[in-house]
């Protein structure tokens, strides 16, 4: 499944980084502590978080993520959008919780393969 399919199927809105929406999704991760996500999120995943500041983009780039989803109707900072556009990391908005979306993604077949290291 690609990020564009995710948007279409689950009613997400792309707030930024639209140039990157044709990437294949290789798993999912939920987390709001950046060091924890940095160390454990699967490469190529879609990351569900409530953090909205610009440093989430660097984490996504370094973990080669497919997209970031801001759950619970959280809105990204302006700087976050600018950075996401520059790095082609889609920032998607979802009005439900990370838990709810993670369940839907799992049911749709987005599961994590073995840990990358």
């Amino acid at each position: 499944m690609k990020t564009q399919d995710l948007i279409d199927q689950f009613g997400l809105t792309a707030a930024a980084g639209k140039a990157g929406i044709d990437r294949e999704i290789a798993g999912g991760y939920c987390g709001d502590l950046l060091s924890e996500v940095m160390a454990n999120a699967p490469i190529g995943c879609v990351w569900m978080t409530i953090q909205v500041h610009q440093n989430i983009v660097a984490v996504a780039v370094l973990r080669e993520m497919a997209a970031i989803v801001l759950a619970m109707d959280n809105q990204p900072d302006l700087e976050t959008c600018e950075k996401a556009d520059r790095e082609k990391i889609p920032i998607l908005l979802y009005n439900g919780s990370s838990y709810e979306l993670a369940g839907k993604l799992y049911a749709a077949g987005i599961v994590n393969e073995t840990a990358d290291e």
Binding site: L33, S35, A39, Q51
Partner: peptide, 16 residues
């Protein structure tokens, strides 16, 4: 509040 300060930075550096 920004998601830092979990006390994982240095342990991450040591592990990786």
């Amino acid at each position: 509040e920004m998601g830092f300060g979990a006390g994982m930075g240095l342990p991450n550096m040591e592990t990786h």
